[in-house]
Design a protein around this nucleic acid. Structure first.
Lengths: 343, 343
DNA sequence: AGCCTCCATGTTTACGTCAACATTTCTGGC
DNA sequence: GCCAGAAATGTTGACGTAAACATGGAGGCT
């Protein structure tokens, strides 16, 4: 946090005034050219453009933001990029925001950062952003030194839908059902589940839908194993599953845990898919190269990102927001890790 | 790109003037309190702080930036976050920058984006950043619609060292040597290499060092296979390697390609590590859960990020930069994918 | 007491941009 | 050739902040 006192020797760039002087026009005319206004004479415009090039003029976004009262920038609050889904989503958000003319401010959540005394404001309030997309579990925000300034437009990804913010997310329930039914359709008696952390809404919705699907099909509901999204936790859980000969089909709540699960099964000498079928969730790029290649549920991150950015920009524009949550569908990708149960 | 014309109804927040009025002091005193200056009476400070809280005052970063001539924000130009290393680095950069009081602006490089007509300035120039960290191959910048404004401090990660910018990076050569020598030490006659894309400096340095190491040890240098960092390309290359019984040890230029390589070897019925030993590079979190767990070269991304951010801030402060490239060391992590060659 | 210093606080101003309004120049119609 | 109206261009001011400078009062020293 260290507010640094060292003064900065900042060579300011050329301003509109400089361009105006050189082109022999008023600053306002330069402004008009810079903003692509139509009411400027062709010859004048060319002269101004030339002057701009000559002095290397760049609009000062701070002045612009001050004048306009908005930054043309959106903040993305992310906890850990290490999670595959968040990374993909962030990437897609950046692309979507850029194509809409917005910059992206990445706001990491650092816990345990005792905030600097004097300033009574939180980090987010100081950020130069017009709105925020929250990419982490909402409840984590409480632990952190970030709190939502009043009146700041917000869109939430991966959270429960009863928040007072618009929510955009993958349709977890649909994906989960797809995965579970795929295994049941292959003839498995039931499907085990390796869930994500309990404080994740995405994880709990996947879990709920898996349970519901089993119930709908009249299948017994085995006990749930819980991981933390990491491959390591998938391995730990996998060792237990591998030891149980009853287990013939497992739905892991993400691909990374599925990877650890695969390792545990190999180690225990249980063949995939002959002895045990495995389905993941996400369809990360590597999933196709797992051994065996992983059957999984594909998420459409760019779509989620596009919708989120659009909803946020809408909120910024109007100051209002729709409360219908947006759910983006998923797709089952069948690969070699699933097969009918051995006789 | 669509520069949108829709006007925005932006409810401005409280300004210093509002706080000043409420606290019965001048705006300047509020400014002093907000910036933690010492020369303010205790009682006055408390009164101002209370007023701030009451009106929900937040400093306007645009005005601040305009006044100070700097944004307290750094830009990170990244091409694709999908690459594991870049993601980790970005994450670490965000943490490091935040802890130094800088915000992070994510600037994706979108190719083929014809820039909006009127504005003659490039995207980066309009970004509200004091400096830039380039996370992509420098030559890609030429293809993109981003060009470096003159006088903008820059730090480059993963590039050739003869640029006019400070370069911070993992010590690719050292890591590559570690990997190669580990395999040679185990008794392998030589080591094959599955390289990254040719236009990557990191890849070419890993390749060069691998070759040098073999030469130093008097080992034959097998032909190089080239991938594009993706697991899929690792698989494609792996199929060729798996078909050659001469191959007993492979050094893949990153873990993702190593994953594809492992799959290809399994598919071909060649046991790892009994028939073929494999070493990766990166030590991504999943590497420990590959089958078999992958021996690999660990990179220290937080260290790279910390150094980059520090160097950039230094450049922002002084306007100068050191040209000594910074190389962050790596570490060999031995897991189950490597063993002495079968007799 | 007289004077000087230090410190809290106030006043003025500029940072770069652009909306709003003011002014000038052009166009066309009669 | 004159005038209305449109189009091009100029002038003023405000956005919120903080540096520079100004003021005024308390306390210390001879």
């Amino acid at each position: 946090m260290t507010a640094d006192e060292t003064p900065v020797r900042r060579r300011r760039g050329a301003s509109m005034a400089d361009v105006a002087r050189l082109a022999g026009v008023s600053g306002q005319t330069v402004s008009r050219v810079a903003n692509g206004r139509r009411n400027v004479d062709e010859a004048t415009r060319d002269r101004v453009l030339a002057a701009m090039r000559e002095v290397g003029y760049r609009p000062n976004s701070a002045a612009r933001a001050l004048r306009n009262g908005q930054f043309r920038s959106i903040g993305v609050i992310a906890f850990e990029l290490s999670s595959f889904g968040n990374t993909r989503t962030l990437d897609a958000i950046a692309a979507a925001a850029t194509s809409s003319g917005y910059a992206v401010n990445l706001i990491p959540v650092l816990h345990g950062t005792p905030h600097d005394l004097s300033g009574a404001f939180d980090r987010l309030g100081e950020q130069a952003v017009d709105g925020v997309i929250i990419l982490i579990e909402a409840h984590r925000l409480d632990e952190a030194d970030v709190q939502m300034p009043e009146g700041m437009p917000v869109v939430v990804i991966d959270s429960n839908a009863d928040l007072d913010y618009p929510v955009v997310d993958t349709d977890q329930a649909q994906g989960s059902r797809l995965a579970t039914e795929h295994l049941l359709d292959l003839g498995h008696r039931t499907v085990w589940h390796l869930g994500g952390p309990e404080d994740s809404y995405a994880a709990s919705r996947r879990l709920r839908s898996w349970r519901q699907t089993l119930t709908d099909h009249g299948c017994p509901v085995p006990p749930v194993l819980t991981g933390d999204w990491s491959a390591g936790s998938g391995y730990a859980a996998g060792r237990k599953l591998a030891a149980d000969p009853e287990v013939t089909a497992v739905f892991a709540a993400n691909d990374q845990m599925a990877l650890g699960l695969l390792r545990a099964l190999h180690e225990a000498g249980r063949a995939v898919p002959e002895d045990v079928s495995v389905v993941g969730f996400d369809d990360m790029e590597e999933a196709a190269q797992f051994w065996p290649p992983l059957t999984t549920i594909r998420q459409f991150f760019p779509e989620v990102a596009r919708r989120s950015v659009d909803a946020l920009i809408e909120g910024i524009r109007t100051g209002e927001h729709h409360h219908q949550p947006v759910a983006v569908g998923t797709e089952l990708v069948v690969r070699a890790s699933t097969a009918p149960p051995r006789r």
